[in-house]
Design a protein around this nucleic acid. Structure first.
Length: 404
DNA sequence: TCAAAGGCGACACTGAGTGA
DNA sequence: TCACTCAGTGTCGCCTTTGA
């Protein structure tokens, strides 16, 4: 059994309105439509550094980092043959999720009462379809072999979590690091082989039959989270345009974490989440240069409007430069220290802010403080502490206008 | 900053099948 | 018969990665 750390029973950062088109089917059931350029990914898989950026085979990845005073870590044990997943395996996983979106005709049911969705566990696919989704203009046996190897790596990869994987149904983080309870990404792979069919003198099926016979399932933990609406919808067509591994990692991180006009991340957070170790100054210079190249690539595909590098400190990712300019007071609560300071001023205790102020809701909390400041100015708040605490706990205040 | 190495994508094919 | 989809083979050269 794994141990669990209770974070917040009521926390649900996922907004139902992930996509634009929502059709009311009944009072509690809604049909939500993906846009044609969109796809989704389970939210833990958007951010945890479970892929290696090294070209050489890595057998295990062990990473730890600290957010808001809590030490977090993951251990990834790769497949015996291929080692840990690389950015290619991430691409393949996202390609499979994209095929799943197409298989359900770009729509799914959302149950308002239970906050659950009905996306399927099984992904039926063909390798040619997968290659197309990954942006390959041609298809051949070598590509098929490569993609199959990637799926097998994903099937065999095991992730152990130490306050890093979030079980959204329980509102808890999985904490055990002893390996008694492990998490896998995919399972039940079934493939279709022309060669084997030929050898057996069996009839070779058409594309429909191949797709029906070739599939892979999403494994239990991640599938349960998806069913419980813990996933992120992002622009898949932009992701596919990216060529650099670090660009892709940053794209996913920012798609998960950013909701406003600008997002600041310090270098140590970036190193932690893209999964690189900085031991020497030389390594740091090397990765800073690669990160800078990636920023240009993110700008080229129009994922970000611009960026500001604050040397030796961090990066401001600017998503909408015009809205940023007109938004009022966006420079308030830029730093974590300032945010925590204000929370303490409002009477929020250490236990409370470490519980409700996390890296994934950072933008919301900062916008919440700007919103509360305005409300206080207008004399609309009777109990500052209680008002702030409710906003933190349930994340139910509409602070969109105060995001930047 | 630059050169070497090798990984990987592009290309031109084949053969089996389906459906109009 | 034609246009299309699928898996599969082998070669070539570009370009990313790596290390100095």
């Amino acid at each position: 059994m794994y141990n669990i750390l209770k974070i917040n029973e009521n926390q649900r950062i996922d907004d139902v309105d992930k996509s634009d088109e929502i059709i009311e089917q009944s009072e509690n059931i809604k049909i939500i439509k993906f846009k044609l350029f969109q796809s989704f990914n389970e939210s833990n898989l958007m951010v945890i550094p479970f892929v290696s950026l090294q070209r050489q085979k890595v057998k295990t990845i062990e990473r730890s980092w600290e957010t808001n005073g809590i030490k977090r870590g993951i251990k990834v044990v790769g497949s015996a043959e291929s080692g840990c997943p690389t950015i290619l395996e991430m691409d393949v996983l996202l390609g499979l999720f994209r095929i799943l979106v197409k298989n359900v005709d770009f729509k799914y049911e959302y149950n308002k009462n239970t906050n659950t969705v009905n996306l399927p566990r099984k992904i039926n696919f063909t390798y040619q379809e997968l290659a197309k989704e990954l942006g390959y203009s041609i298809y051949g046996g070598s590509i098929k072999k490569k993609l199959e190897k990637s799926i097998k790596t994903l099937l065999e990869t095991t992730i152990y979590s130490n306050f890093a994987l979030r079980d959204v149904n329980e509102g808890e983080y999985i904490t055990d690091f002893n390996g008694e309870e492990s998490f896998r990404i995919l399972k039940n792979y079934k493939s279709y082989s022309y060669s084997k069919k030929k050898k057996k003198c069996e009839k070779i099926g058409n594309s429909k039959e191949i797709k029906e016979q070739q599939s892979v399932d999403i494994d239990d933990f991640f599938f349960k989270n998806i069913c419980n609406n813990y996933f992120n919808i992002y622009d898949y067509t932009k992701y596919v345009k990216l060529t650099k591994g670090i660009s892709k990692k940053m794209f996913l991180l920012l798609s998960q974490w950013s909701h406003g006009y600008i997002k600041y991340l310090n270098y140590s957070t970036i190193y932690d989440y893209i999964g690189v170790d900085i031991t020497l100054k030389q390594t740091q210079y090397y990765y800073n240069r690669i990160i800078k190249d990636s920023l240009d690539e993110l700008k080229d595909i129009k994922f970000i409007d611009d960026y500001e590098v604050i040397i030796s400190e961090g990066i401001n990712f600017i998503f909408n430069i015009n809205k940023l300019r007109i938004s009022k007071g966006y420079d308030k609560y830029k730093s974590t220290e300032e945010t925590i300071g204000r929370l303490q001023e409002l009477g929020i205790t250490f236990e409370e802010w470490t519980k409700y102020y996390r890296i994934d809701n950072e933008d919301y909390v900062k916008a919440l403080l700007r919103y509360i400041d305005d409300k206080i100015k207008k004399g609309e708040v009777r109990d500052e502490r209680q008002y702030t605490l409710t906003g933190l706990k349930y994340e139910n205040y509409d602070v969109t206008k105060y995001m930047h």
